[in-house]
Design a protein around this nucleic acid. Structure first.
Lengths: 203, 203
DNA sequence: GGGTTTTAATAACGATCATTATGAAATTAG
DNA sequence: CTAATTTCATAATGATCGTTATTAAAACCC
C-alpha cells in the first residue's frame, strides 16, 4: 500500500558514491549529494538514513563493486602474485575515473572535525580488516614454503598496505598510471622469493 | 604609535599548527583554532589573514620546525642513507605527538570541498617539490656510481614518497613506531646497491 | 471511489561556518 | 593632557551545514 518509489535506489547510491569518492565524507555536502543522486534531500534520508549511514552504504557498495579484486587476489597461488594482483588492480581503480581518483577508503576521512570521528574509525577498521586478510594469506604462504622462514607476514602486509595507501595519495594528486606502475614494480622488486628448499624434497 | 600586541605570534601559530595537523584544513574550525592559539578570532585575522593564509603560514612553520631533516638528509653521502634517514625521521615525526599523528602535508587536505581546492593544490605542490629534490639527489647518486646504471631516480623518488605517504596514513590510524620501522626496513630492503664496478677501478 | 498510506518536493529548522563591525582599552605623539 | 592609532573582546554578519516539518501527489486496499 502506498506510493511507489520513483527513483532507482542503486543509481542514486552510485551517484552518492562518486561524490564521497571525490570529496570525502565531510567535503561532500547534501547539495553535492542530491545533485549527483538526482534526488531531493528527504528521499536520501528516507532511503538511506542520515549522512553517516549514507556513507556506510556507499562504502559497502564500493567494496562489492570496486574492491572485489581483493578476495580474488587472495586465492592466487603465490604471495607474490597476490601482492602484484592487488597492486595493479589498485592502480587501475585509482586512475580509471578522472572525476574521482584515488581510493574512497583513503579519501573518506583522514583528518577531520570531531563530528567525522565515527566515519574515520570505520575506515581505519576497514583498512585493518584488509591488512589482517593479507597477513593471514602471507602466513599461509610461509607455511606452504612460498615464503622463506625469515619472512614476516605482518610486516609484508603492513608494507603492502603502506604502498597502496601512498599510491592512493599520489593518484589523488594526479599521478599517472605509468608512474604508479613503476612504484608498484619497485615495491615488488624486494618481495621475498620462494624458499630455496635446501633440505626440502618437492613432493 | 598605538597599542602593543599582547600575545606571542609564534606561540599562537604553533597552537594553530597543532590543530591543522590533527584535524586538517577543513576540519579545523575557528573555535578550535582560537582555543589552541589562546587568542580571539580578530587577532588571528589581523596577524595572519584569512584561513587559507593562516594555513600557509602554519605549513611554512611546519617545514622549518619539523621537516628540517629533509635538507639535512639530502647531504648524506649515499642514496641509501638519504632514504633511510628520511624514513626514520618521518616515522619519528609521525608518531612523536599523540595529539597530532601523521603528517600535516598529508592530513591537510586529501579530498575536500571545492572551497578547499586551493589548499589541496598547495600541498600537492609541496609534495612535488620534495619528490623533485629526491629525484635530483638520486640522479646525482647515479652519476657518482652510488646507484647502478639501471636505477631510475624518478621511480625511486616516487616510491620513497609513496612509502612515506602510506606510513603517514598508517600513523594517523594509530600504527606504532615499531610497525612503521618494520615497513621502512622492508622498503629499504630492495634499495639498489652501489655499482659493483665490474670494470671500474676505485680511485 | 473514498480512505489510507507512502513518496515527492518545497521550504524551513537551529547550528555552525568563516569573516568582520563595533566600541572599549591601551599606547604613543604632540 | 589631548588626539591619534592600534589591539582587544564581544557579538553580529550572511552563508551553508545536516536534518526535518509540511503539504501535495500518487498508488494501494476495501
Amino acid at each position: 500500500m502506498g506510493r511507489h518509489r520513483e527513483f532507482d535506489v542503486e543509481k542514486a547510491l552510485d551517484g552518492v558514491l562518486c561524490v564521497f569518492w571525490r570529496k570525502g565524507y565531510e567535503g561532500a555536502s547534501y547539495a553535492d549529494l542530491t545533485a549527483a543522486a538526482g534526488v531531493e534531500r528527504p528521499a536520501l534520508y528516507s532511503a538511506f538514513g542520515n549522512k553517516e549511514a549514507l556513507f556506510r552504504k556507499a562504502l559497502a557498495r564500493y567494496y562489492e563493486r570496486y574492491l572485489d579484486y581483493i578476495p580474488a587476489a587472495l586465492k592466487l597461488p603465490t604471495s607474490r602474485e597476490v601482492a602484484a594482483h592487488i597492486l595493479h588492480n589498485a592502480i587501475d581503480l585509482n586512475t580509471r575515473f578522472s572525476n574521482h581518483t584515488g581510493c574512497l577508503v583513503i579519501n573518506g576521512v583522514l583528518a577531520g572535525s570531531d563530528d567525522a570521528e565515527p566515519v574515520r574509525q570505520i575506515l581505519i577498521e576497514a583498512r585493518a580488516v584488509a591488512e589482517a586478510q593479507l597477513r593471514g594469506r602471507f602466513e599461509q604462504a610461509k607455511a606452504e614454503g612460498d615464503l622463506p622462514e625469515t619472512a614476516k607476514p605482518g610486516t609484508l602486509a603492513a608494507f603492502l598496505m603502506a604502498v597502496l595507501h601512498g599510491m592512493a595519495v599520489q593518484a589523488k594528486a594526479g599521478f599517472s598510471r605509468e608512474t604508479l606502475e613503476a612504484v608498484a614494480e619497485q615495491a615488488l622488486s624486494c618481495w621475498p622469493g620462494a624458499k630455496s628448499t635446501p633440505s626440502g624434497k618437492s613432493s
